[in-house]
Amino acid sequence: MMKLSKRLQTIADRVTPGSRTADIGSDHALLPVYLVQSGRAPSAIAGELNTGPYQAASKAAASAGLSAVISVRQGDGLSVLQPGEADTVTIAGMGGSLMTDILEAGRLAGKLEGVRELVLQPNVGEEFVRRWLVKHGWTLTDETVLEEDGRFYEVLRAVLSPTASIENAALYEPAFLNKPETESALWANWLYRMGPHLLRNPSPVLHQKWELEIGKLERIVAQMAGSDTPDARAKEAEFRMEIAQIQEVLACTPTDKPSSN
């Protein structure tokens, strides 16, 4: 059986067993091949826009003897999918903004009809993905953060839910951060950015990711210190405030905090 990277294995583990899965931006079709080989998915669709990866995916499915159950298709985003063909859609390895563009285009075209589960791994811009899910009736049921080869990745699993508005209102309620109710909107924004499940069940990896982000921001502030222009001073103040807010959130979520779920 194909061996996956830690990142791809984390995605695979969140696909509900028995789900017909469409992997969008499949590259070499590593995930679809693994899902079918392991018996987790009875069939899969591997979608890829660019010719090189599309050919590589076709070769991978054929080499594994799975061409009959893995359909490799070339096209843009969810355009490769027909309504009702998949139970789960996985998208990984791209920015959150692009990912939401793909999801939205697919939604408007009816390509998400029949899809009940999304497993998403944005490289950056996770906030955009979380906001899209909330806006369109998806409930974030699970998220995890991992480190691999010096990079941090977040994997999000969401399900389509008729009660998503109620579930999401509770999920993004920042009361557990012990902040004043008058500042609720501010801290809710940080839940979208840092992850509501991740903050409720904090891990050392989560803290490592955001300590690294603080370090980046501090270096930017240090570089700006030599400029006396009003714009530079304003931007420096913004970055300092961002650093302070990240530190406040992390202080509210120590890694030894008992799980609230």
Rank of each mutant, 00 (worst) to 15 (best):
K3F: 11
K3A: 15
I11H: 01
I11Q: 03
R14L: 13
V15L: 02
V15G: 04
P17V: 09
P17L: 03
T21W: 00
T21I: 07
D23V: 07
G25V: 12
H28S: 06
Q37M: 09
R40V: 11
S43V: 09
G47H: 00
G47Y: 00
Y54K: 08
Y54C: 12
Y54I: 05
A56N: 09
A57R: 04
K59A: 13
K59E: 15
A60D: 08
A61T: 07
S63G: 15
V69E: 02
S71F: 05
R73S: 07
Q74Y: 01
G75H: 09
L78Q: 08
L81Q: 09
Q82S: 15
P83H: 11
G84Q: 10
T88V: 06
G93V: 06
G93E: 01
G96N: 05
L98V: 10
T100F: 01
E104A: 12
E104W: 08
G106S: 13
R107G: 06
R107Q: 15
R107N: 10
L108M: 13
L108F: 08
G110F: 06
K111A: 14
L112F: 10
R116C: 10
L118V: 14
L118A: 04
V119K: 00
P122K: 02
R130N: 10
R130I: 12
W132K: 01
W132F: 13
E143F: 03
V145S: 01
E148Y: 14
D149H: 12
L156Y: 06
L156C: 08
R157L: 07
A164K: 03
A164I: 04
E167G: 03
A169K: 11
E173W: 07
L177W: 01
K179T: 12
P180Y: 04
E183L: 13
L186E: 12
W190T: 02
R193S: 05
H197V: 15
L198A: 15
R200Y: 04
P202Y: 04
H207K: 02
L217I: 08
I220T: 15
G226Y: 04
G226P: 08
T229V: 07
P230G: 10
A232F: 05
E238M: 07
M241P: 01
E242P: 05
I243N: 12
I246K: 03
L250M: 12
L250C: 09
K257I: 08
S259I: 06
S259P: 07
N261T: 14
